[in-house]
Amino acid sequence: MKQQLIKARNLHKYYAVKSGYLQPAQSLKALAGASFDLYEGKTLAVVGESGCGKSTLARLLTMIEEPTSGQLSIDNIDVAETTEKSIKKQLRQTVQMVFQDPFGSLNPRQKIGNIIQEPLIINTNFSANERHQQVLEMMELVGLRNEHFQRYPHMFSGGQRQRIAIARALILKPKVVILDEPVSALDVSIQAQVINLLIELQQELGLAYVFISHDLSVVRHISDQVMVMYLGKPVEQGPNKAVFNNPQHPYTQALLSATPQADVEGKRQRIKLTGELPSPIDPPSGCAFNPRCQYADKNCQLHEPVMELYGDSRVSCLAVAQQRIGQLKAS
């Protein structure tokens, strides 16, 4: 049995939004109930369009922010209950993150070597020489050359910058790495290199990844488990194969049908979603997806669906529960 690294139960994160001096503050439900487990050496992909709470989830997992409610355990330690600084520090070292934009995530005024060793300076008592050594080893591991140590971020291409960001995330030897759209800012040819690097590192170091993305073809390639989110809520989660080969939630089906494929012969029905993503301040009643769902009926506006197991995946949809949905052709 692999070690459980992250256990999240019903995570919520609300932000207070002030609309005016006289009006009461409204709450923006950025994340409204996410539950999942992450095991050593596994990859959980979190998928969804902009504003669905993917990045909020990343901020909770990296402990930059605290959940409004729900339980989060990292490495079997409950985050909310830990007040001791040393344990928090240890947890922080357990979870590290790679950001989406490699142009914004590296301090333009710091040399690469200093960027990578900053976590060591803050969290460890290594001497300058030991740090230097570790940084060089890490740079080699991610495919950077020694002479890059003294250079500045702007002298690197996007792919190399992302390697630097990965090196920085790995220098503290974390067990979990949150990858917040790590390749979406890169050219497609570079994307493959970075993805392969990530897969190699995972095998070598036994890392667990939370891979946040909207690019389903990448997700299909790298993930073990997939969680599809809509407006702060997971709508479908399950093993890679189950979600991709047998998408059940209408939203998942729509997402998959929108993924470009190099298959000329295969006829696919393209599900077009109409309408805009509703505001997370004032989500639709019942199922949040109902205004855009082709299967929605009155029930969907009245009742909120709950996550239930259908086949291999857990789906939150009334239409699925009532078997009103035709299956999307497995592509």
Binding site: R92, Q100, G104, S105
Partner: peptide, 17 residues
């Protein structure tokens, strides 16, 4: 609000740093 500040914050950098 740039990511490099968040990245430093995430590794536990102090406010002064």
């Amino acid at each position: 609000n740039r990511d490099y500040v968040t990245a430093s914050k995430m590794t536990g950098a102090s406010s002064t740093r």
